[in-house]
Amino acid sequence: MSETDITPDTGSTATTTTAGESDEQARDAWTEYRAAGETKLSVEDINVWYGDDHALKDVSMDIPEESVTALIGPSGCGKSTFLRCLNRMNDRIKAARVEGSVEVGGTEIYHPDANLVELRKRIGMVFQSPNPFPKSIRENISYGPRKHGEIEKGLLARLFGRDDTEAEAELVERALKQAALWDEVNDRLDDNALGLSGGQQQRLCIARCLAVDPDVILMDEPASALDPIATSKIEDLVEELAKEYTVVIVTHNMQQAARISDQTAVFLTGGELIEYDDTEKIFENPESQRVEDYITGKFG
Protein backbone atom coordinates (compact mmCIF):
# COMPACT_ATOMS: atom_id res chain seq x y z
CA MET A 1 0.00 0.00 0.00
CA SER A 2 1.41 3.38 -0.85
CA GLU A 3 0.33 5.88 1.74
CA THR A 4 3.43 8.00 1.66
CA ASP A 5 1.77 11.08 0.34
CA ILE A 6 -1.87 11.36 1.15
CA THR A 7 -3.61 14.67 0.87
CA PRO A 8 -7.29 15.21 1.54
CA ASP A 9 -9.49 14.60 -1.41
CA THR A 10 -11.37 17.81 -2.20
CA GLY A 11 -14.13 16.22 -4.16
CA SER A 12 -15.84 14.33 -1.39
CA THR A 13 -17.01 17.24 0.77
CA ALA A 14 -19.47 18.58 -1.73
CA THR A 15 -21.54 15.42 -1.74
CA THR A 16 -21.83 14.91 2.00
CA THR A 17 -24.55 16.39 4.18
CA THR A 18 -23.84 17.79 7.60
CA ALA A 19 -25.85 17.68 10.77
CA GLY A 20 -25.54 21.06 12.46
CA GLU A 21 -25.42 24.54 11.10
CA SER A 22 -22.08 25.31 12.73
CA ASP A 23 -20.74 22.16 11.15
CA GLU A 24 -21.95 23.34 7.82
CA GLN A 25 -20.25 26.68 8.26
CA ALA A 26 -17.05 25.05 9.34
CA ARG A 27 -17.24 22.74 6.38
CA ASP A 28 -17.70 25.64 4.01
CA ALA A 29 -14.78 27.43 5.56
CA TRP A 30 -12.67 24.32 5.30
CA THR A 31 -13.49 23.85 1.62
CA GLU A 32 -12.67 27.44 1.01
CA TYR A 33 -9.29 27.24 2.71
CA ARG A 34 -8.35 24.06 1.02
CA ALA A 35 -9.34 25.50 -2.28
CA ALA A 36 -7.04 28.39 -1.50
CA GLY A 37 -4.38 25.80 -0.68
CA GLU A 38 -3.43 27.29 2.66
CA THR A 39 -1.49 24.54 4.33
CA LYS A 40 -0.46 25.29 7.88
CA LEU A 41 1.65 22.29 8.64
CA SER A 42 3.38 20.26 6.03
CA VAL A 43 4.95 16.99 7.13
CA GLU A 44 7.18 15.01 4.84
CA ASP A 45 8.57 11.53 5.31
CA ILE A 46 8.90 11.73 9.04
CA ASN A 47 10.42 8.75 10.85
CA VAL A 48 10.82 8.32 14.58
CA TRP A 49 12.88 5.72 16.41
CA TYR A 50 12.78 5.09 20.16
CA GLY A 51 16.08 3.31 20.57
CA ASP A 52 15.75 0.47 18.04
CA ASP A 53 11.98 0.67 17.90
CA HIS A 54 10.81 2.24 14.66
CA ALA A 55 7.75 4.04 16.03
CA LEU A 56 6.72 6.15 13.05
CA LYS A 57 7.32 5.18 9.44
CA ASP A 58 7.52 7.58 6.50
CA VAL A 59 4.52 9.68 7.41
CA SER A 60 3.66 12.62 5.23
CA MET A 61 0.61 14.84 5.46
CA ASP A 62 -0.55 18.41 4.97
CA ILE A 63 -2.65 19.97 7.68
CA PRO A 64 -4.80 22.89 6.56
CA GLU A 65 -5.29 26.12 8.45
CA GLU A 66 -8.16 26.87 10.86
CA SER A 67 -9.66 23.42 10.94
CA VAL A 68 -9.69 20.39 13.19
CA THR A 69 -7.57 17.46 12.16
CA ALA A 70 -8.12 14.26 14.14
CA LEU A 71 -5.54 11.52 14.48
CA ILE A 72 -7.11 8.18 15.36
CA GLY A 73 -5.87 4.66 15.73
CA PRO A 74 -5.35 1.90 18.26
CA SER A 75 -2.94 2.20 21.18
CA GLY A 76 0.72 2.23 20.23
CA CYS A 77 0.07 3.14 16.61
CA GLY A 78 2.25 6.25 16.75
CA LYS A 79 -0.41 8.97 16.69
CA SER A 80 0.85 10.66 19.85
CA THR A 81 4.42 10.31 18.62
CA PHE A 82 3.40 12.02 15.41
CA LEU A 83 1.73 14.83 17.35
CA ARG A 84 4.83 15.37 19.48
CA CYS A 85 6.90 15.69 16.31
CA LEU A 86 4.96 18.79 15.36
CA ASN A 87 6.34 20.93 18.21
CA ARG A 88 9.52 18.93 18.73
CA MET A 89 8.42 17.62 22.12
CA ASN A 90 10.11 14.38 21.14
CA ASP A 91 13.38 16.23 21.68
CA ARG A 92 12.66 15.92 25.39
CA ILE A 93 12.81 12.13 25.20
CA LYS A 94 16.48 11.22 25.19
CA ALA A 95 16.07 7.91 23.36
CA ALA A 96 14.00 9.40 20.54
CA ARG A 97 15.46 10.09 17.10
CA VAL A 98 13.48 12.00 14.50
CA GLU A 99 14.16 12.15 10.75
CA GLY A 100 12.20 13.95 8.09
CA SER A 101 10.80 17.37 7.62
CA VAL A 102 8.02 19.43 9.19
CA GLU A 103 7.25 22.87 7.85
CA VAL A 104 5.14 25.40 9.62
CA GLY A 105 3.95 28.12 7.27
CA GLY A 106 6.87 27.29 5.02
CA THR A 107 9.57 27.22 7.73
CA GLU A 108 11.40 24.00 8.53
CA ILE A 109 11.18 23.34 12.26
CA TYR A 110 13.82 20.61 12.29
CA HIS A 111 16.38 23.07 11.03
CA PRO A 112 19.47 22.94 13.29
CA ASP A 113 19.11 26.62 14.12
CA ALA A 114 15.38 26.50 14.79
CA ASN A 115 14.26 28.65 17.71
CA LEU A 116 12.48 26.21 20.02
CA VAL A 117 11.03 28.93 22.23
CA GLU A 118 9.41 30.66 19.28
CA LEU A 119 8.28 27.36 17.80
CA ARG A 120 6.51 26.24 20.96
CA LYS A 121 4.96 29.65 21.41
CA ARG A 122 3.44 29.27 17.96
CA ILE A 123 2.47 25.63 18.37
CA GLY A 124 0.82 25.11 21.74
CA MET A 125 0.06 21.76 23.28
CA VAL A 126 -2.57 20.31 25.59
CA PHE A 127 -1.77 17.03 27.26
CA GLN A 128 -3.71 13.88 27.97
CA SER A 129 -4.14 14.38 31.70
CA PRO A 130 -4.77 17.94 32.93
CA ASN A 131 -1.48 19.33 34.21
CA PRO A 132 -1.95 22.81 35.66
CA PHE A 133 0.96 24.11 37.75
CA PRO A 134 0.55 24.18 41.52
CA LYS A 135 -0.05 27.91 41.28
CA SER A 136 -3.12 30.12 41.27
CA ILE A 137 -5.45 30.18 38.27
CA ARG A 138 -4.20 33.64 37.36
CA GLU A 139 -0.55 32.65 37.58
CA ASN A 140 -1.19 29.55 35.47
CA ILE A 141 -2.60 31.67 32.65
CA SER A 142 0.00 34.40 32.80
CA TYR A 143 2.90 31.96 33.26
CA GLY A 144 3.87 31.76 29.59
CA PRO A 145 3.63 35.48 28.74
CA ARG A 146 5.43 36.34 31.94
CA LYS A 147 8.31 34.00 31.23
CA HIS A 148 8.51 35.42 27.71
CA GLY A 149 8.81 38.90 29.12
CA GLU A 150 5.50 40.07 27.70
CA ILE A 151 4.14 40.76 31.15
CA GLU A 152 6.29 42.38 33.82
CA LYS A 153 4.99 42.98 37.28
CA GLY A 154 6.17 42.97 40.83
CA LEU A 155 8.52 45.17 42.78
CA LEU A 156 11.38 45.31 40.28
CA ALA A 157 9.11 46.02 37.32
CA ARG A 158 7.47 48.83 39.27
CA LEU A 159 10.86 50.31 40.11
CA PHE A 160 11.59 50.47 36.38
CA GLY A 161 8.25 52.10 35.80
CA ARG A 162 6.45 49.17 34.24
CA ASP A 163 3.52 47.41 35.83
CA ASP A 164 1.44 45.14 33.63
CA THR A 165 -1.11 44.19 36.26
CA GLU A 166 -3.91 45.55 34.10
CA ALA A 167 -2.58 43.89 30.97
CA GLU A 168 -2.33 40.63 32.89
CA ALA A 169 -5.93 40.92 34.05
CA GLU A 170 -7.06 41.48 30.45
CA LEU A 171 -4.99 38.59 29.19
CA VAL A 172 -6.32 36.25 31.87
CA GLU A 173 -9.90 37.26 31.14
CA ARG A 174 -9.47 36.85 27.39
CA ALA A 175 -7.83 33.44 27.66
CA LEU A 176 -10.36 32.15 30.17
CA LYS A 177 -13.27 33.41 28.09
CA GLN A 178 -11.84 31.75 25.00
CA ALA A 179 -11.55 28.52 26.96
CA ALA A 180 -15.15 28.91 28.21
CA LEU A 181 -13.97 28.88 31.83
CA TRP A 182 -14.36 32.54 32.77
CA ASP A 183 -17.89 32.28 34.14
CA GLU A 184 -16.94 29.41 36.42
CA VAL A 185 -13.77 30.83 37.96
CA ASN A 186 -13.84 34.64 37.65
CA ASP A 187 -14.47 35.09 41.37
CA ARG A 188 -11.58 32.90 42.49
CA LEU A 189 -8.69 33.66 40.18
CA ASP A 190 -6.26 33.57 43.10
CA ASP A 191 -7.25 30.09 44.21
CA ASN A 192 -5.07 27.07 43.62
CA ALA A 193 -5.62 25.69 40.15
CA LEU A 194 -5.34 22.17 41.54
CA GLY A 195 -8.61 22.78 43.39
CA LEU A 196 -10.57 22.81 40.11
CA SER A 197 -12.39 19.77 38.76
CA GLY A 198 -10.70 17.64 36.11
CA GLY A 199 -12.68 19.18 33.25
CA GLN A 200 -12.04 22.70 34.49
CA GLN A 201 -8.34 21.93 34.87
CA GLN A 202 -8.17 20.76 31.26
CA ARG A 203 -9.91 23.92 30.03
CA LEU A 204 -7.48 25.90 32.18
CA CYS A 205 -4.62 24.14 30.40
CA ILE A 206 -6.20 25.11 27.08
CA ALA A 207 -6.49 28.70 28.31
CA ARG A 208 -2.86 28.63 29.44
CA CYS A 209 -1.91 27.48 25.97
CA LEU A 210 -4.04 30.20 24.33
CA ALA A 211 -2.45 32.88 26.51
CA VAL A 212 0.84 32.70 24.60
CA ASP A 213 -1.15 33.32 21.40
CA PRO A 214 -0.30 30.25 19.31
CA ASP A 215 -1.30 29.55 15.70
CA VAL A 216 -1.62 25.81 16.10
CA ILE A 217 -2.92 23.87 19.09
CA LEU A 218 -1.94 20.24 19.48
CA MET A 219 -4.16 18.15 21.72
CA ASP A 220 -3.13 14.72 22.93
CA GLU A 221 -6.35 12.92 23.89
CA PRO A 222 -7.49 15.96 25.91
CA ALA A 223 -10.75 14.38 27.07
CA SER A 224 -9.64 10.84 27.80
CA ALA A 225 -9.37 11.44 31.56
CA LEU A 226 -12.69 13.27 31.80
CA ASP A 227 -16.33 12.38 32.38
CA PRO A 228 -18.91 12.68 29.54
CA ILE A 229 -20.12 16.17 30.47
CA ALA A 230 -16.61 17.59 30.75
CA THR A 231 -15.78 15.82 27.49
CA SER A 232 -18.63 17.44 25.63
CA LYS A 233 -17.55 20.84 26.92
CA ILE A 234 -14.04 20.24 25.61
CA GLU A 235 -15.46 19.12 22.28
CA ASP A 236 -17.58 22.27 21.95
CA LEU A 237 -14.51 24.27 22.80
CA VAL A 238 -12.40 22.56 20.15
CA GLU A 239 -14.99 23.34 17.49
CA GLU A 240 -15.08 26.94 18.64
CA LEU A 241 -11.28 27.21 18.60
CA ALA A 242 -11.07 25.87 15.05
CA LYS A 243 -12.53 29.18 13.86
CA GLU A 244 -9.30 30.93 14.74
CA TYR A 245 -6.71 28.25 15.28
CA THR A 246 -5.42 25.16 13.57
CA VAL A 247 -6.23 22.27 15.85
CA VAL A 248 -4.64 18.83 15.63
CA ILE A 249 -6.23 16.41 18.05
CA VAL A 250 -5.31 12.84 18.93
CA THR A 251 -8.22 10.73 20.10
CA HIS A 252 -8.98 7.07 20.56
CA ASN A 253 -12.67 7.86 20.55
CA MET A 254 -13.91 7.50 16.99
CA GLN A 255 -17.26 9.15 17.70
CA GLN A 256 -15.36 12.14 19.01
CA ALA A 257 -13.28 12.31 15.86
CA ALA A 258 -16.40 12.05 13.73
CA ARG A 259 -18.17 14.75 15.72
CA ILE A 260 -15.53 17.44 15.84
CA SER A 261 -12.96 16.98 13.10
CA ASP A 262 -12.85 18.24 9.54
CA GLN A 263 -10.32 15.71 8.36
CA THR A 264 -9.10 12.51 9.91
CA ALA A 265 -5.87 10.58 9.72
CA VAL A 266 -5.95 6.89 10.62
CA PHE A 267 -2.79 5.34 12.01
CA LEU A 268 -2.72 1.58 12.38
CA THR A 269 -0.20 -0.74 14.00
CA GLY A 270 3.46 -0.18 13.32
CA GLY A 271 3.44 3.57 13.05
CA GLU A 272 2.04 3.81 9.56
CA LEU A 273 -0.41 6.39 8.33
CA ILE A 274 -2.97 4.30 6.47
CA GLU A 275 -5.43 6.87 5.30
CA TYR A 276 -5.87 10.63 5.56
CA ASP A 277 -8.95 12.24 4.16
CA ASP A 278 -12.03 14.27 4.87
CA THR A 279 -13.70 12.98 8.03
CA GLU A 280 -16.99 12.00 6.38
CA LYS A 281 -15.14 10.15 3.70
CA ILE A 282 -13.12 8.20 6.27
CA PHE A 283 -16.14 7.26 8.32
CA GLU A 284 -18.52 6.51 5.47
CA ASN A 285 -16.45 5.29 2.61
CA PRO A 286 -12.81 4.64 3.47
CA GLU A 287 -10.48 3.59 0.69
CA SER A 288 -8.67 0.99 2.75
CA GLN A 289 -10.28 -2.22 3.92
CA ARG A 290 -8.17 -2.12 7.11
CA VAL A 291 -9.47 1.33 7.97
CA GLU A 292 -13.03 0.18 7.40
CA ASP A 293 -12.43 -2.82 9.66
CA TYR A 294 -10.98 -0.57 12.33
CA ILE A 295 -13.81 1.94 12.15
CA THR A 296 -16.54 -0.66 12.21
CA GLY A 297 -14.88 -2.34 15.18
CA LYS A 298 -13.72 -5.55 13.51
CA PHE A 299 -10.13 -4.76 14.32
CA GLY A 300 -8.15 -2.75 16.82
Partner: peptide
Protein backbone atom coordinates in the same frame (compact mmCIF):
# COMPACT_ATOMS: atom_id res chain seq x y z
CA UNK B 1 3.94 16.82 33.63
CA UNK B 2 4.91 20.21 35.03
CA UNK B 3 8.15 20.19 33.03
CA UNK B 4 6.32 19.08 29.87
CA UNK B 5 3.65 21.73 30.29
CA UNK B 6 6.24 24.43 30.78
CA UNK B 7 8.34 23.26 27.84
CA UNK B 8 5.25 23.17 25.60
CA UNK B 9 4.71 26.84 26.40
CA UNK B 10 8.16 27.59 25.04
CA UNK B 11 9.69 28.30 28.43
CA UNK B 12 13.37 27.50 28.76
CA UNK B 13 14.58 24.76 31.06
CA UNK B 14 16.26 27.09 33.54
CA UNK B 15 13.13 29.24 33.83
CA UNK B 16 11.08 26.09 34.33
CA UNK B 17 13.36 24.92 37.13
CA UNK B 18 13.28 28.31 38.78
CA UNK B 19 9.56 28.93 38.65
CA UNK B 20 7.94 25.49 38.67
Amino acid sequence: EYRDASAALGVSQWETIKSV
